[in-house]
């Protein structure tokens, strides 16, 4: 897609996208300036950045989290913080199976009794 289509697809201002590309949060387009082409990976990268900004991460922290690939810490409740793979942020992944697994794990962890093996 062209730059204008990327702007429409993400709803992000053109200058902000240029900033994200310059800062390395979004990969540069293929094809140089004249034939600059963008694809779904650019849309995903922009959506991920904007979601992390909405969560309160400053740009420098987002850079480090994405570079280090140590996971995005998101507090859930007192004493519980989720660590999410950056690739999952704003990816549109169905949360239902994750919630199911999370539910089982958190019950197992918090229960006073040991979970049955198997």
């Amino acid at each position: 897609m062209k730059f204008g289509e990327l702007v429409i697809a993400t709803g992000v201002a053109p200058r902000q996208i240029r900033y994200l590309i310059a800062e390395g949060f979004v990969p540069p387009p293929s094809g140089g300036r004249t034939y600059a082409t963008y694809d779904q990976s650019h849309v995903t990268a922009i959506a991920r950045y904007e979601r992390l900004r909405d969560l309160g991460f400053p740009p420098a922290a987002i850079r480090l989290l994405l570079d280090a690939r140590e996971g995005i810490p998101v507090p859930v409740a007192n004493g519980v913080t989720m660590i999410i793979d950056p690739d999952l942020v704003a990816s549109g992944t169905d949360p239902a199976p994750i919630l199911e697994a999370f539910n089982a794990r958190i019950r197992a962890v918090l229960s006073r009794e040991a979970a049955d093996a198997g």
Binding site: A60, R63, L64, E70
Partner: peptide, 16 residues
């Protein structure tokens, strides 16, 4: 064990 906030305390947090 991984400290999830460890990344945020590194000195090289600045961008361009």
């Amino acid at each position: 064990l991984v400290d999830p906030l460890a990344a945020l305390f590194r000195p090289d947090l600045r961008g361009e």
